[in-house]
């Protein structure tokens, strides 16, 4: 087991900075800003409304405390005026917060997250998580999945070129997992028996974490993969290193005999599902 070093002393500054704010992981995606924006807008309006609530609460507590010795007003708050007031404020909240974030969200879904790229220039990748690792599959020279020349790199390694849309289709080998890219602000469940999809586009090179966000067993916490974003050339050369033959060797290396029949087979991959 890994030995963990406590950071007792370092943590004192976190107390102060952490209480207020922590940066999310660096956003390296084309559309991640949209999610940050909707969250920030919600922060703002909710902050205002909650501020008003707290201010009113504090004022009432101070002004109407019984120790001042005044009598409460006998008022059921049932008058038309009162009802209109609460109803009006309810609607105000709805239109200033809910309607706005709904509009932002629907717009972002339409323009980005649910708007799969139609151009030719896309990288298509199939993802098949298993307990507890990530398997990836590239179509290979013939651009078709489920054929002999599919490229299956070693486990937990996903490479993509920068500034190119990437479409990912996901199915699960065993239980439910969830493909989570914190630096890209997206995740998508991997459910056995169905194929789900997402797309994204990287704007910076580097190596980023792939996490599993759905409880999938005792090693869920370390079901970690690595997403390498690199230049188009580096990507192509990486792909060519992973020729089909070689990747099959990789598969033979993986796992011990007992697991042979349960592991993902060498030639996995499904015919690409067209997304409408």
């Amino acid at each position: 087991m890994k030995n963990y070093q406590s950071k007792n002393i370092n943590s004192i500054p976190y107390f102060f900075s952490g209480f207020w704010y922590k940066d999310p992981p660096k956003d390296v995606s084309l559309d991640g800003y949209r999610i940050d924006n909707v969250i920030h807008y919600t922060d703002l309006v909710i902050g205002i409304y909650f501020g008003i609530v707290v201010a009113a609460l504090a004022y009432f507590i101070f002004k109407y405390r019984a120790s001042l010795g005044h009598k409460a007003e006998y008022d059921h708050g049932n008058s038309r005026k009162n009802v209109m007031f609460t109803g009006g404020l309810g609607l105000l909240v709805f239109f200033s917060v809910d309607a706005v974030i709904e509009k932002m969200a629907f717009k972002d879904l339409k323009e980005a997250f649910w708007n799969f790229p139609k151009t030719e220039n896309v990288i298509r990748i199939e993802v098949m998580p298993q307990q507890f690792a990530w398997n990836f599959c590239y179509a290979g020279p013939d651009n078709e999945f489920g054929t002999d020349d599919d490229i299956i790199p070693s486990q937990n390694q996903m490479h993509i070129p920068v500034n190119t849309p990437v479409v990912v289709q996901i199915a699960s080998w065993d239980v439910i997992h969830s493909f989570y890219l914190p630096n890209f602000r997206i995740k998508q469940d991997a459910t056995p028996g169905m194929i789900t999809a997402l797309w994204f586009q990287a704007t910076e090179t580097g190596v980023f974490d792939i996490a599993c966000a759905e409880l999938c067993g005792n090693s869920h916490y370390k079901m970690k993969g690595f997403l390498t974003v690199e230049s188009e050339e580096d990507f192509q050369s990486w792909l060519s290193e992973n020729t089909p033959e070689e990747s099959q060797d990789d598969w033979d290396d993986w796992g011990d005999e007992d697991e042979e029949d349960t592991g993902v087979p060498e030639d996995w991959g499904w015919a690409w599902k067209e997304i409408k």
Binding site: I35, I39, I101, A105, L109, A213, E214
Partner: peptide, 10 residues
């Protein structure tokens, strides 16, 4: 919010 939840879910 669906978009925010894509990130925040789980």
């Amino acid at each position: 919010t669906i978009t925010a939840d894509i990130y925040l879910h789980d």
